[in-house]
Amino acid sequence: MALLEVSNLSIAVAAGGKLLPVVQGISFQVEAGKTLGIVGESGCGKSLTSLAIMGLLEGSQVRIIGGTIHFNGQNMLTLSDKKRREIMGAEMAMIFQEPMTSLNPVYRVGDQIIEAIRQHKKQTKQQARARAIELLTLVRIPDAEKRIESYPHQLSGGMRQRVMIAMALACDPKLLIADEPTTALDVTVQARILELLKELQQQTGMAIVLISHDLGVIAETCDSVAVMYRGKFVEVAPSAELFSTVAHPYTSGLLSSIPVSDHEIDRLDAIPGRVPMLGEDVIGCAFHPRCNLAQECCSLKDPEEVSLTQTHFTRCHFPIGSNL
């Protein structure tokens, strides 16, 4: 069994007495030591998926309405709160999109890391402090002994995200969920953070689920990629395969909207139209109103999942480059 197995996960948002589906029956697996990238536009449900895995969906508005999440053989959705908290932050950890606001402004960063360590490990304050310094050094924060005394507002965005990573690694998690970890950062800092994540993965053997709207980021870091559109995976493939043989027109659209620096272009190819609003009904394939390859049947019937190879799936009536 894979480390993380999500099957048929559906999430809905309650609004005006109705349940609006946001994530619709997605399934995937992540093996230990591997990285899965989930990519999609804002509002496609990728962040909610990551919060659902972590058990951080809160409030009565957002609900998991179907499916299972198995982590390390345990069904996370039927686990008691107490058991789930024992896993959160210990075996499964998460870093978020906004390093600027994800740290508590009134505590020193060291104390916040120490809190994460002592929550799950029986350590004295001194031991935990030593471990916190070790972690800060691990994520390449210079002068870790001094930095441990800093407050979040005294650190740059990149530094704060490093602190977040150090905090997530505090208890050697088996799985790290990174929800847009570099979106709020400068491009140069982005590259360094991604590199750091890759290196840490090699050292610790943890699995990573990387959520991003940026195919470039995904391409650099992931073993396999899931492309999400409107709550469904429209294409899943190993990274190399996805980039060499794109099957879904949406993936293809995402790829051609990445600016390439080595030849001159006047305009980026944007995908026309917009993501349908939550609760807006689209009959047939959810992408067909924006798809330039759409044919009549696309507006009538939602495509089933088709497997192109053993590891490459897509949801399209007319996958690019196939004779279906």
Binding site: M54, R85, S102, L103, N104, P105, Q119, H120, M167
Partner: peptide, 14 residues
């Protein structure tokens, strides 16, 4: 509603 509270919950705190 602030992000850092979510971080605290993600640590597994009661």
């Amino acid at each position: 509603r602030e992000d850092h509270v979510r971080t605290a919950r993600a640590k597994g705190l009661h």
